[in-house]
Nucleic acid binder design. Structure first.
Lengths: 231, 231
DNA sequence: CATTGTGAACGGGTTCACAGCA
DNA sequence: TGCTGTGAACCCGTTCACAATG
């Protein structure tokens, strides 16, 4: 009898856990605050470095100390996506890395188009840091006749006029926009028409996009201007 | 009599305004939330572009639409530092630019040291976007004997071992750290000992610094990983 | 009359504190 | 015992709404 109750209890618990996990997966996109999502890449990067150094487990306390947030916040953030820790021993680093990669969808490699073969664009093509983090530059565009047809690293620089043709062909969904401010909006429009759904905007101007397209801004001077306030 | 009252009233108002402005300037560093400071460079950059395009005034509504925040937030943010607007007509763009530059202390040009002459470091030296925004790379360091003594743009690459000697000499307070993760902490320690008080950290690892030193992280892969969550 | 500056209300992210579990 | 997961309390940034004003 006791055995049966235990068994029933266990089944019930497992069932409820399964329900709860599925529910979380279902509603995740609606409910997880963006600010939490934005911290996950930082956790992931830190865990990857710890793993390379041979560490196997870590507590929320230690991880929080390293990345500069409270232990409670680490736990709350991670628990949005499931129960990945073990009481008394913390989180398994390889397991948490795997889960974070799944959540952020970087458990694969995304092809990225780079628009603009200026100084910054050239540096991004050379940059070694993308490939282990889930991204590979797969195509480079520019509209300068001097540059079109030339090599940049392993790529032939393509005519920006062919974005609408080549990007859908390659099925590319992510673009880095590294063009002058004046060109940014019209190039962005072209990219979106070509099927791009995420734009990393290095142009020094905001761009307007439909609500189903994601944009992140990057401006090398802005964090410097932020810091000088405090000097 | 009416004239006198007007005059007195005006003096009183000016006096109170002066008091209030001074008080704001005094307590500003304690009270303004960092998240507000982080939006100011975005406002400034946007206003500078509008000014180049010949615009003279703008309302909080329109500025908010452009940068993607509410009009109320624009007004609250700006009013932390004084009363720069005019009821009925909005903000004078040149005046607001001047004030924001003062607040962010980019109404001057800061010398910046760049540590690490790899791909990314090289691109930052070439980058044209710093100089109009208040920053000038003034010195480049690396610890690779192959690179030391070579030219990078207009600079001779200096031996990183001489940071402690050359940076205080030049009075440099800002550094961009573009070195491998393994070297980041020790180089940061050296920089801080040399008098650096703000570090823009391109190394893919957090660094520990004393509370009077500012650090901002930049990682080209992190915003991409943030966006893929939503794809 | 359009638009700012701001006190008050609101909302949601963070911290707290502890039950639950290995 | 050590540490996670989480409801509740708290805190702080955002929005609201309107008096003030050129």
């Amino acid at each position: 009898m006791i055995q049966m109750q235990r068994a029933n209890h266990l089944h019930l618990r497992l069932y409820l856990e399964k329900l709860s996990t599925e529910r979380k997966a279902m509603v995740q996109k609606e409910k997880v605050p963006d600010i939490i999502v934005s911290r996950l890449p930082l956790y992931l990067r830190t865990l990857e470095r710890l793993h390379e150094a041979g560490r196997q487990t870590i507590s929320s306390q230690e991880l929080g100390d390293i990345v500069g947030v409270s232990a409670a916040q680490i736990r709350k953030d991670i628990s949005q996506f499931g129960e990945f820790g073990k009481q008394g021993m913390g989180y398994s680093i390889p397991y948490l890395i795997e889960k974070l990669r799944q959540i952020l969808k970087v458990d694969r490699v995304w092809d990225v188009a780079l628009i603009g073969a200026g100084n910054l664009g050239r540096a991004l093509v050379q940059y070694q840091g993308f490939v282990n983090r889930g991204f590979r530059i797969a195509m480079v565009f520019d509209n300068d006749p001097q540059k079109i047809g030339q090599m940049l690293g392993e790529f032939v620089i393509q005519d920006a006029a062919r974005i609408g043709e080549l990007i859908p062909q390659a099925g590319i969904q992510i673009a880095m926009l590294v063009v002058p401010a004046a060109a940014a909006q019209s190039v962005a429009d072209t990219l979106i028409k070509a099927g791009v759904r995420a734009i990393l905007n290095y142009a020094p101007t905001p761009i307007n996009v439909p609500p189903d397209v994601r944009v992140e801004h990057v401006d090398p001077a802005m964090p410097l201007q932020h810091m000088t306030y405090y000097l």
